[in-house]
Design a protein around this nucleic acid. Structure first.
Length: 513
RNA sequence: GGCCCGUUCGUCUAGGGGUUAGGACACAAGAUUUUCAUUCUUGGAACAGGGGUUCGAGUCCCCUACGGGCUACCA
């Protein structure tokens, strides 16, 4: 088992956008494969034709690609086990269902939806603990166990609709090992004869999943905890199909929970919670609604990856910032936690901030430049770089830069008089006018020179610079917070500073006279 | 309801019999920047409850409570 080549798959269903929990499942699969020098593949599980959503598959693949979770085999990449879409593998599944019937591990069932409902209601009314189609109840249903052989044959030949169900033993313990949870034991009396093959000719998830994992030589099934209850069924399928030796190891991941109330994070949460649950923007073709994504919100793929990796896994050290290569190096399923994790949007932003401030000014400037142009400004690259270096500390996203940096590109057209008034003292106008004059004699070589000149002036007036610095900031930038004023002045240049200063003082002279 | 899984600061988590129960995010205070933000320092903040086992339990076992998942011809 352990000397088997590691092959894992991410098997999404194209029923809409991929949410962040699915992304994490894909990531863990990817990390595990890379860590062990194995293969990561993608298989599209589109056996439910009713839930198929056009565009979903492309979306999923694009999202994973954006994050760098790239498969070696998959619907768009091909591979030795193609096709990688279950709908295109339709013909393969029937033979295995037939094999199970012949071996006595499955049977035909002709019950209608109404009859099934009736049966469940009847059992509920009789206070049966868990109403299910099982070793006991199947004897009173319409199937190839209760019907005479010739009747079954007649129905089959007449084309009557039917499904194929697994025939579970009445009382048997099914035990299997989960890498994250240890040994798990379930009794077949608590399971039911699940449908393996639907009346529309498609297999259900259970059959298709087991068959494909076997055929694709999957060594480890790493999936969400919601699959834990059906894992025993899958174990039995491997056994009945004669593949027990090749059965993959299981690892059921803890779920991602809603940060507010209860329950697992789901696609329905969309933008309800005030943050994205999708990697990319998603336009629902049916409703026309757009769900926002991390990419469009300005997140770096590395930050999203890093954040997601730490939700339910930890390296055993205090390191928090990891590149993909480092994640691969450190990852292990043994260090995945058992309990579900609530999604913390604040921490997601913090991760992006970390990624942002570690980018070079050159790179950030090149990302910011289009936004500068879009806002109708123009500036050379060096200037933008300087701006970026001053504002990046206080931003989580490049697209936040402009709100902190607008004044670098245009003089303020209005001032916040309310805040200004709070800082305004009787001698403020006089002090500031004197300062403005003093700056005319300063050469603006760099921030330090401006600072020295300013302080010298204030000293001559026997005042502290803190007394008017806030007003100075508002007059020059229109904002009450920002980077060092002397750095700002050095960057704006002497002419601009003097001009803004005088214009501002004209305003205050009128407003606070 | 039944079955399965889980439970350490508000959140993500470290911890596998002997710890002042550690870190990160968030929060608060102080310092610095004579402003704000950054940065630095400090602080508050947790083993769900009850029984065992043991010289000794966050760590092992049981029960209860709570949370989550599943219970479809969906995945």
């Amino acid at each position: 088992m352990s000397d088997r080549r590691v092959r894992v798959r991410f098997a999404p269903s194209p029923t809409g956008y991929l949410h962040i929990g699915g992304v994490r499942t894909a990531l863990y699969n990817y990390l595990f494969a890379k860590k062990h020098g194995g293969d990561f593949l993608i298989r599209i599980e589109d056996t439910d034709q009713n839930r198929f959503v056009p565009g979903a598959e492309d979306y999923i693949l694009e999202a994973l690609n954006w994050l760098g979770i790239v498969p070696v085999e998959g619907p768009k990449h091909g591979g030795p086990h193609a096709p990688y879409r279950q709908s295109e593998r339709k013909e393969m599944y029937r033979a295995y269902a037939d094999q199970l019937i012949e071996a006595g591990y499955a049977y035909y069932a002709f019950d209608t939806t109404e009859e099934l409902d009736e049966m469940r209601k009847r059992l509920e009314a009789a206070k049966v603990a868990s109403p299910q189609y099982n070793a006991i109840t199947r004897n009173s249903m319409v199937n190839s166990i209760t019907l005479p052989d010739d009747e079954v044959k007649r129905r089959l030949e007449a084309g009557d609709p039917y499904v194929i169900r697994i025939k579970l033993p009445r009382q048997e313990e099914v035990r299997f090992h989960d890498i994250i949870r240890g040994w798990i034991v379930v009794h077949t009396q608590n399971m039911d004869d699940k449908v393996l093959f639907k009346s529309d000719g498609m297999p259900t998830y259970h059959l298709a999943n087991v068959v494909d994992d076997y055929l694709m030589e999957i060594s480890h099934v790493i999936r969400g905890e919601e699959w834990l209850p059906s894992a025993p069924l899958h174990v039995l399928l491997y056994r009945y199909l004669g593949w027990e030796e090749k059965m993959p190891e299981f690892a059921h991941l803890p779920l991602l929970l809603k940060p507010d109330g209860n329950g697992k994070l789901s696609k329905r949460d969309g933008d309800r919670l005030g943050f994205p649950v999708a990697p990319l923007n998603w336009l629902d073709p049916n409703t026309g609604e757009t769900t926002s994504g991390y990419r469009e919100k300005g997140y770096y793929p590395g930050a999203v990856l890093n954040f997601l990796a730490m939700l339910g896994w930890n390296p055993g050290t205090t390191q928090e910032i990891f590149s993909m290569a480092e994640l691969i190096e450190s990852f292990s399923l043994e260090r995945v936690s058992k309990a579900g994790a609530k999604f913390d949007f604040e921490k997601a932003k913090w991760f992006n901030h970390q990624y942002l401030i570690h980018r070079s000014d050159e790179e950030l400037a090149s990302q910011f430049k289009p936004l500068v142009l879009e806002a109708g400004f123009s500036a050379d690259d060096r200037y933008i770089q300087s701006v970026v270096s001053l504002v990046k500390e206080r931003a989580n996203f490049v697209m936040d830069f402009m709100e902190h940096a607008r004044f670098f590109f245009e003089a303020p057209t209005s001032w916040d008089d309310d805040t200004l008034r709070k800082k305004w003292k009787a001698d403020s106008q006089d002090l500031l006018e004197g300062w403005s004059e003093a700056l005319k004699n300063c050469d603006f070589e760099n921030a330090q020179v401006i600072e020295d000149a300013s302080k010298a002036y204030m000293e001559s007036r026997e005042a502290g610079i803190g007394k008017v610095l806030q007003a100075f900031r508002i007059l020059l930038t229109g904002l009450s917070a920002g980077p060092s004023m002397f750095e700002i002045c050095a960057l704006l240049g002497k002419d601009e500073v003097i001009s803004r200063f005088e214009k501002g003082l004209n305003h205050t002279k009128e407003a606070f006279a």
